[in-house]
Design a protein around this nucleic acid. Sequence first.
DNA 1: GTGGCTCATATTGTCTGACAATCAGACATT
DNA 2: AATGTCTGATTGTCAGACAATATGAGCCAC
Lengths: 225, 225
Amino acid sequence: MPAERPFASLRLEHSSTVDRVAEELRRAVFEGELESGTPLREVALAESLGVSRSTVREALTVLVAEGLAVREPHRGVAVATPQAASVRDVCAARWVLEGAGVRAWQAASSDQRAHVHETLDAYTSAVRAGASYQELNARHLAFHVSLVALVGSPRLVSMAEGLMDELRLALAQVERINRNAHDQAETHTALVRLLDEDDVEAAHRFLRAHLVDAEEEIVHALGLV
Amino acid sequence: MPAERPFASLRLEHSSTVDRVAEELRRAVFEGELESGTPLREVALAESLGVSRSTVREALTVLVAEGLAVREPHRGVAVATPQAASVRDVCAARWVLEGAGVRAWQAASSDQRAHVHETLDAYTSAVRAGASYQELNARHLAFHVSLVALVGSPRLVSMAEGLMDELRLALAQVERINRNAHDQAETHTALVRLLDEDDVEAAHRFLRAHLVDAEEEIVHALGLV
DNA sequence: GTGGCTCATATTGTCTGACAATCAGACATT
DNA sequence: AATGTCTGATTGTCAGACAATATGAGCCAC
């Protein structure tokens, strides 16, 4: 019987100008090129990127929606400045999402569990390969997103991705000055080992401790900036 | 000792034109004036609202970000069509958030617990007063958001608000045809009673059942549309 | 010096008008 | 029926304009 959408797997991304500008700004933020608080002037960006002001405005709206920048009426958009309070909030939220993911381990599909292993492998091999801060952060946080994905809700996943983007911003600001991205490969491997043993309770407690540690470390590092 | 932001609570909303347009579109969607799938043409909206096309575009971007509308490249924005799958996803996500809220009951502040009572009262009195569908939906969902607020994370709250907006869209579409918004005041009162008795476990199970019911009901009603 | 005033400048918020790229539907061709 | 072509509608992006508002400097009074 013929499928009703024979070529459903084919897809080509139609990157709009706005998307490209937003991506470039995101990159600059995560790369630490833009210090937190830096104002993002519309005309200056438009000229330097060779696009119109309207396009820049739309891209800035995206950044603001993602929490990477803040807009104040008639004062413009600036790179967000991570505060201790907002980091704690992000961590509280991620604990809810990731904790739910871990609890869903046994109910999760084998694909979802495999995906956790994949993101862990990607992280640990990046650590071994001595990858850049940005890549380590990205892979580390991707692992945590894969935990949330165990719940099986696309919306929860995109929420988690948004939270991780905010963390990446905070980490980028911290690492501009203090490059202390230490190796956490064993910690995560241990977490997954607990999951593989189906000891969900222990994994849950372990994750809790890990997230609390991460929160304290980021907040502490922020205090030094 | 003087606070560092003495009048932080004061705030006067400088409603921008974009905000007003977005609010008007939101209202029209929740009111059921716009059937799901209705294309939102930029020029037509601009003329009928008396604003420029750029302003309409920015407002539409907001609606799309909120999940109330979908944009397809070069084809424009249309009112989102709630699918069974997306409703189930929203419900899975809200279960994670609201469940975490209920579990946080005992650790929550008295303000937060009082807020749950307030939103419940607002809902039940609206029921008694025979309020409109829209108002009942809004107050009903505001109660559920107040559960999430027990966690104490602003970001989780705004995530929950986003989910509820999507549900309001779905409800508005089913109620365009089938007005079956039945009274759920007792259910919610019972839930809060369990919380007041600090029987968090029972409240958790009760909430679970309530959310499953709600999901099935909405999905079923959607099937009739 | 502090506090308050006016004013010039920069920037945003919004509008108008334009044009190419793309899409949807009708129509013609094979 | 499937394919190619034309036409109109709509979006994506651009350029330029103007009013409202915020920022900062200078100036004045005390």
